[in-house]
Write a protein that binds this DNA or RNA. Structure first.
Lengths: 157, 157
DNA sequence: GTGGCTGCAAAGGATTTGCACTAAC
DNA sequence: GTTAGTGCAAATCCTTTGCAGCCAC
């Protein structure tokens, strides 16, 4: 993500904090930068690695992640059943994830069909849709054979 | 679930155990019965409640749940982010879940469209589909207004 | 100066594990 | 009799929390 985009994400977060009478701290700014500068899924632990040397405690990381989710810059993703995983969604198109059961790599695919399905399923039943969480488990064997690998591919952890 | 269905689920489990040279124990049989006799999502903890008085330890519950998932009688469902939730899928049509963000009730909806989407998305990208996990969050306000509530509705926990 | 924020360490809660004993087969 | 299963308690792992001092505003 470009420096300008990171700046504007930071601006969004500052605005959010101001609205709630919360403070813009050194730690919060560093965390936003470190999150935005990489297109990579992360956990509290891997985020801790990214800010190693910046003197930010684990507790602050967890607390800031909550704020970033409420603010909408970050979302929790259903990649792992043992720990919470996150991604920043600032300027991203909606998408969902495929996890390869063999190599554990994570792939993103177009989320519009899922969103349509979400709208249809809920409306038909008398709900107002809010959000969804989805993960497809699959094998990437065919993918590797054909080598037709032009989509976004992200290695988990 | 009728007594005959429970019996046949038990038979499936016994067969699975035999294939792996594992033993059919009192605890395992009781757990299968208690799970099958209710159409209700459950966690290790609520299952512990269901077998209260049968003298089955927490450790055995966790260990048996793993076996039942491998065996295919039970599946983990993405209902809660804080604990593992399960349902038995023996003789059930494929379905996914809507959780109301207000009242936390859980509703099931037809899973065929999601399965089709799973097949399409993975095949297009060169994967072999395995499974998926999905939860839609929504508000059941409209549903309550219209009272058109003829679908399966399950209260969580 | 006030009120929120941070770091630390301790607490919490779900799940797993080591081990001696018990029970299927 | 052999091998796996069980119960118990301890351990593990992720996440949250209490609190005293610190820093943004």
């Amino acid at each position: 993500m470009s420096i300008e985009h990171i700046q504007s994400a930071l601006e969004v977060f500052r605005e959010f904090l101001k609205e709630r009478d919360l403070k813009v701290t050194r730690q919060r700014e560093i965390l936003v930068r470190r999150i935005m500068e990489r297109e990579e899924h992360f956990s509290a632990e891997t985020l801790e690695d990214r800010v190693k040397g910046d003197g930010i405690s684990k507790a602050t990381i967890y607390r800031t992640l909550q704020l970033l989710c409420e603010c909408g810059l970050v979302e929790e993703v259903a990649l792992d059943d043992d720990r919470r995983m996150y991604e920043h969604v600032y300027g991203h198109d909606p998408h969902d994830h495929i996890v390869c059961v063999d190599c554990r790599k994570v792939f993103e695919f177009d989320g519009k069909p899922v969103l349509e399905l979400q709208t249809r399923s809920t409306n038909n039943l008398g709900f107002t849709p809010v959000s969804h969480r989805m993960r497809i488990e699959a094998r990437c064997d065919l993918l590797r054979e054909t080598g037709a690998c032009d989509r976004k591919e992200i290695k988990l952890i």
